[in-house]
Design a protein around this nucleic acid. Structure first.
Length: 446
RNA sequence: GGCCCUAUCGUCUAGUGGUUAGGACAGCAGCUUUUCAAGCUGUUAACUCGGGUUCGAUUCCCGAUAGGGUCACCA
């Protein structure tokens, strides 16, 4: 029997981390066993479902690198549900019941309820083992609002059976739904699929992950600049450790090692710091060109947002420095927004008092700056190495701090920044000399 | 509250009837460095509690406690 699983999101909200987790776990299992996947948009709740949400879920899952073999919408399968409902009523396994509406008190509606045999139901969970429920307390639960308006439990059971789903892999919030669904399956004479309920992931305070405890929407991680490979890698490892113990893995590598029975039983806290680490690792593995394509547009818009003139040459040379200092693109926006990179695009306004190094004095600063100016004026090629080579011996002789601090501060106007060699090479000879001159003029009479 | 599930460093986890309980993230320290970042090295830190079973339990069983889930005319 070949494996067949489903991605059954209900399009009642944006694609969130939980949706992605449900999808990867099903994906890994299906691909591992050469099975197929049906994407089923569970839009039985007409009021809350929307095509916009559905499109977002599809878009984000694809962005994460996931795929599926067929697509369906519960709402387009109603004929099957009606047929099942009719059978159930005809065989007296279910019945129509006229009741006061819970949605609109005062009005009366007809709902379809399953005649609950009230027995104990035991099913084997691939992750947790046997689980037994006494279904008597469930009573005759509702399975449809009307003969052509099925409720979730009826719809999933019918759809799963129609599709020949072999494995139902879902979050443990569904564990208590399982006995109801089994009751419906039995009333309909369907075969029971295998079940596997993985634990839910939690927010930092161990509560349910929500907007309050952190971001849940996949698109917001995407907008922050997280890489899809990093995100899916992290999400898959939340509650699963491959036998090899490897952390950084591609989807294909994970498929290779995946085993449903190795999913953990307890819930894991979603840790943004660790996700950031994954993202940084992936960023470090990018080629210079693709990393540049990733950061340059962001850099440019952030710089322009500061009202500074954009310079392609400077931007291009800045790329390696950027990679060293960020875990995710949003860090960049933050650093730039704080003005930490302004000096790359516009001359800084250094404070004369800070030009000499703490243990040095203005007179020495003047001497050293003047030396640097002369030495660099004669240099034709500005790279971090050539700049360093021209100044290093002198700096070593006269005190690296005393020489290099004034230079770096003159170029950046900041107490903290990349080193002067890198900065000089990025802003170029003209700007370097101009900034040294400016600093020199500031401390001329000190 | 009823029912169901779960329980190893702060977090993600490995692991075993006898281990110095291992790794990763974060943290801390040192090195490097004019500063910052990065890098390198080192390091702090855990088996929820109480009963059993056993020569011996972190590991097996029971209970307590805690956390989570679920109790819809949502999915």
């Amino acid at each position: 029997m070949s494996v067949k699983v489903r991605f059954p999101p209900s399009p009642t909200g944006w694609c969130h981390v939980g949706t992605a987790r449900m999808a990867v776990l099903n994906y890994l299992f299906a691909r591992k066993h050469g099975g197929t996947i049906v994407f089923r948009s569970e839009d039985t709740d007409k009021e809350r479902s929307s095509r916009e949400y559905e499109a977002d879920i599809i878009e984000q899952l694809r962005w994460l690198g996931l795929s599926w073999d067929s697509f369906q919408r519960t709402s387009e399968l109603v004929a099957h549900h009606t047929h099942a409902l009719t059978t159930l009523i005809e065989t007296d396994k279910a019945y129509l019941s006229c009741e006061e509406s819970k949605r609109e008190p005062g009005t009366f509606v007809e709902v379809v309820r399953l005649r609950n045999p009230g027995k104990a139901v035991t099913f084997t969970d691939l992750i947790r083992g046997d689980i037994t429920f006494d279904t008597a307390e469930l009573g005759d639960f509702a399975i449809a609002r009307a003969i052509d308006d099925p409720l979730y439990h009826l719809a999933v059971v019918v759809d799963d059976a129609a599709e020949g789903i072999t494995h139902v892999i879902r979050g443990e919030d569904h564990i208590s739904n399982t006995p109801r669904q089994i009751l419906i399956q039995e009333a309909l004479g369907y075969e029971r699929p295998q079940y596997a309920h993985y634990p839910l992931h939690l927010g930092a305070d161990k509560s349910k992950l929500s907007k309050r405890t952190g971001d849940v929407a996949v698109r917001s991680y995407r907008e922050k600049g997280f890489l899809p490979d990093a995100l899916i890698n992290y999400i898959a490892h939340l509650g699963w450790t491959p036998p090899s113990g490897k952390e950084l893995m591609s989807l294909d590598e994970m498929v290779e090692e995946f085993e449903l029975t190795e999913l953990h039983k307890s819930g894991a806290v979603f840790d943004l710091e660790k996700l950031r680490w994954y993202n940084r690792e992936y960023l470090l593995r990018e080629t210079e060109a693709s990393f540049a394509a990733y950061v340059l547009p962001l850099l440019k818009s952030a710089i322009e947002l500061r009202g500074l003139p954009w310079d392609d040459a400077v931007g291009g040379k800045l790329v390696p420095t950027l990679r060293e200092r960020m875990s995710v693109a949003s860090d960049l926006a933050e650093m730039i927004g704080a003005g930490e990179y302004d000096f790359f695009f516009a001359d800084p306004a250094p404070d004369a008092a800070h030009i000499p190094e703490k243990k040095s004095n203005p007179a020495d600063a003047r001497t050293h700056l003047a030396y640097a100016r002369t030495a660099l004026e004669g240099l034709t090629t500005f790279t971090p190495e050539t700049v360093k080579d021209t100044l290093w011996t002198y700096a070593a002789e006269h005190g690296r701090g005393a020489v290099l601090w004034p230079l770096r501060y003159a170029l950046t106007g900041q107490q903290r920044s990349p080193d002067p060699f890198v900065v000089a090479s990025i802003i170029g000879k003209t700007a370097t000399l101009r900034r040294i001159d400016h600093a020199l003029s500031l401390i001329a009479r000190l």
